[in-house]
Design a protein around this nucleic acid. Structure first.
Lengths: 152, 152
DNA sequence: GACTATTAGTTAGTACGCAAAGTAATTTAC
DNA sequence: GTAAATTACTTTGCGTACTAACTAATAGTC
């Protein structure tokens, strides 16, 4: 039996993709924090605003599908965005189960300020756009693989 | 001024690396959940066990540095691992401020079962090991870039 | 040797993220 | 047309993450 050394250890922390993913996600979100703070937004709230700027109006269900988040996560998050004055939440008159989320004028105006953020983050990272694009492609493939059912 | 179209929109959700990172991290962690559940572990707890299997004994501070987590996150997490019977927590007799975390026999035995997990996740993803290795390398570069101070 | 500063952990508060249970509206089946 | 199933959202509970305030122990300064 082969001895378990540093180089063959399947459980070595620094070889785990899941570990690198967790750290990378938290590290990048940390870069956004000081940029989002002046707007009163958290990173998940910022992602919800991105979705709304692009696709408003959206139901809670549609937003949850876009962001791949539970209704149990979306529901309080949207209440906080409403409390901040960035979104409206009202029932769909054609289907009272559904909640239509729209932007307030303040929420719509925020977009201009938000456009400063992506370039600021890229500059802060100091990485080539090509490399970031490659990473995005690789992550998209990983996400797809993770969502492909077991038996395919 | 150039019109903001789908293809030039800096704020398009599906172009954000931070968004892909969040989803990828959550999606991969979701793959671990059913595998970790029989051991009673969450994914962050699993990462802490990986660190301990590799480097035990570790202080809370050292564990937090390895996992890049706050003491405010580590402290309750380790109490839960202790409640599960996988780790001991006792003060360092040479420096009573420091808490030494060690594995219990049950915690040490768990390693054998845990060795099944990485191959199971890789199989579940159905991706080449090369591609995963490339992704790991890219993520490591991103983490390093995110941690490089602003003025360098 | 006492005063101050630093260090290691803990605790409280806020906001995700997910599971599970609950509610109300709509659809389906008969 | 009503009972049952489904759907959309809310709420509760638990475990991270992070900030900030706090406690206790140690180190540094004079």
């Amino acid at each position: 039996m082969e001895p378990v050394t540093e180089t063959t250890d399947l459980l070595a922390l620094d070889r785990q993709v899941c570990f690198a993913l967790s750290i990378a996600s938290r590290s990048v979100i940390a870069l956004y924090r000081p940029l989002l703070q002046p707007m009163g937004l958290t990173h998940p709230q910022y992602l919800a605003m991105l979705a709304l700027w692009q696709h408003e109006p959206l139901s809670v269900k549609e937003l949850g599908e876009l962001l791949q988040l539970d209704p149990g996560t979306m529901s309080p998050l949207l209440k906080r965005l409403q409390a901040l004055g960035y979104v409206n939440r009202e029932r769909n008159s054609h289907d009272e189960r559904s909640l239509v989320v729209t932007l307030t004028p303040a929420g719509r105006e925020l977009r201009t300020r938000a456009e400063q953020i992506p370039p600021a983050v890229v500059a802060r990272l100091g990485m080539d756009l090509d490399e970031l694009q490659d990473l995005h492609t690789a992550l998209t493939r990983l996400i797809k693989a993770a969502h492909t059912p077991d038996d395919q």
